[in-house]
Design a protein around this nucleic acid. Structure first.
Lengths: 347, 347
DNA sequence: ACCGATCATTGCAACGTTGCAATAAATGCG
DNA sequence: CGCATTTATTGCAACGTTGCAATGATCGGT
């Protein structure tokens, strides 16, 4: 039971015997350590000839700077941290997000570390840990609240981060967000255009800022169109469950049931739609339905339901791009983007 | 546009002004650097009194060893890498897996880095990169093939890893796997008990070893029960798609349609079931259906369909535990576990 | 041919940690 | 009490990197 104590030559043993470092190149070229280091980082004051020589040698031995060395010396970790929230209502949210981030950092020095934190309140502690121990150069958070304490904390310490979702803070910070207002407006308009006069909107997690944006726009648009609306926050109930399905069923039976429904979660929508059909509702005639879509499942089960797509992969991509620019020092106010919802009208 | 160059005091400025290091404690206690370091790692040769003193001081200043320092000196990264495969047929696979890993490393020194690699062939390169650059102390891979080249590579270099899935290699390695054979057997038995005489099994990705195990057991069990069976590999077709639904539809119309179906993917099952219903099939009477379940969605949509559960969260937990023990030097042959399928008979 | 200026390269120290050899202090023993 | 032995502590070097001050080389101008 010997421990995996790294031997002198860390990593795969190359023909040469050990991992290439600056020293390797230095010996190979006869130049000093400093020169090699400088050259590799594009030192402006070097002769073209030496730069060539160094670059060649580096390529030959397959030099890759040691992360620990750089990090120790400069403090740069070349790591971005994703603080993952557990309350995934969107199907495969994590997968798409991570894939987006992965594609965005591929080709860069950066690695991605994921800190899954499922207890919302402890999520602040996770961020604090990252700050205190400088465990990453930048942070991506999701499920952002209106006065998110993580955002507060990172702003206080002037630490590079980007949030998936906006906040109400006065000081600007980098964010990328789904345009929930556009979503809500688009949905209401579509339903109203199709004849709906009483719209129910079902939203999850009432703690995210997204929620507020959706509700606000929903109510404004309802009013403008001169129709009625009601809001249901379905926070405590599991999105995919018999309970949720029953909710749809009960809704169908109600004498004053709505004639249009908007739902901000694909999973919840699926459950609810099943319940509605149980209750004999004919979708598209008795009740019109629109929901946010993040995977292909809903459309496979209910091909005729209108959806509005949020591209989580693209969000991951964009969040990362913003974050990298933020780390480079770009001011936060120029790093704020929204993604427009993409409507899929299926009928 | 100033760069985020780490200042001298990295991390959150404590009251004291900068991050606590061994030196801080050394000065605080009057002991030497070496003593402090030794003491913190439980040096056996130290006076009880000094150990106390050091521990106290460390707690007081909130000392946490600098990862870069440790890593540079010892080569230990305190990182485990998850090489994530993109072809997620299981709903929320990534999320559950990551959550399991997260829970397993919480309280340890370890961080999780995720390397999303969606091109299967490049996945080997990802592993090679980790080995060459000693970017992690151990690796978790998923979607393991029978003669997986990543496994080969890591075994060749005696690098700690654990695979989600078994292989055919002679040399033992650490793994945790879903007991696919038990799954297949359980499913066939159940269907046969309920009167099925001709069973179709639909499997995805034919490159994983899982696939082989399922098929082999399927055919053996079929034979034993004296009934007929057929295998359909649905590799090229998207699990959630109109196409997949159509497959179910077409199946329903066939004169020689099977009277029992087994499916190893929840998503594919949902699509297929919709198609079958389109074709007028009465589930549970005309055709009996069993599928692998990794989320709650299928059961919400089709509450009466029998499922067999694979707990991906638990898999993440177990994989990590195994890996950590492997990193500690335990022999691979003692780090091989299977997870038993959990049947949910709903009718 | 000498001077100051520019260009190219280098040595040194430091980032935080640990292993080892070496020292200092305490103890045992005759 | 002196010497060997154990117990407790320490200094030094090294891991790979970079920033800075310092050195050495080259050059144009007088």
């Amino acid at each position: 039971m010997t421990k995996f104590r790294p031997d002198v030559s860390r990593g795969i043993r190359k023909p040469s015997g050990k991992r290439a470092t600056l020293k390797t190149i230095s010996e190979l070229t006869g130049l000093s350590l400093s020169t090699v280091s400088l050259s590799l980082r594009g030192g402006a004051s070097l002769k073209e000839e030496t730069r060539q020589k160094v670059a060649e040698a580096a390529a030959q031995v397959g030099y890759v700077p040691d992360r620990a060395g750089v990090r120790l010396r400069t403090g740069k970790t070349n790591v971005i941290a994703l603080v993952l929230d557990g309350s995934d209502e969107a199907i495969d949210f994590s997968r798409h997000m991570i894939r987006g981030i992965g594609d965005a950092i591929s080709g860069t020095r950066y690695h991605l570390t994921v800190m899954p934190e499922f207890d919302r309140s402890r999520s602040v502690e996770t961020v604090r840990y990252i700050l205190e121990n400088r465990t990453a150069d930048g942070v991506i958070i999701t499920h952002t609240g209106a006065r998110d304490r993580r955002v507060q904390l990172m702003m206080d310490h002037d630490f590079p981060f980007v949030s998936h979702g906006r906040t109400e803070f006065f000081t600007p910070h980098a964010f990328h967000d789904f345009h929930s207002e556009a979503f809500a407006e688009l949905a209401v308009e579509r339903l109203a255009d199709n004849g709906a006069r009483d719209i129910l909107i079902s939203v999850g997690d009432g703690t995210t800022n997204n929620y507020h944006n959706i509700i606000r726009t929903f109510e404004r648009t309802i009013a403008r169109r001169g129709i009625t609306g009601r809001v249901v926050v379905q926070d405590g109930i599991r999105p995919a469950s018999a309970e949720m399905r029953q909710f749809g069923r009960d809704l169908a039976d109600k004498p004053d049931r709505p004639d249009g429904i908007i739902c901000d979660s694909e999973t919840r929508a699926i459950s609810m739609l099943c319940g509605l059909e149980d209750g004999g509702v004919l979708l598209g005639r008795d009740i019109r339905f629109i929901c946010k879509q993040t995977s292909d499942i809903l459309s496979t089960v209910f091909p005729n339901v209108d959806t509005i797509e949020e591209d989580v992969y693209a969000a991951g991509l964009e969040l990362t791009r913003l974050l990298l620019r933020r780390i480079e020092g770009e001011p936060a106010e120029s790093l704020q983007t929204l993604s427009e919802p993409v409507a899929h009208w299926r009928s």
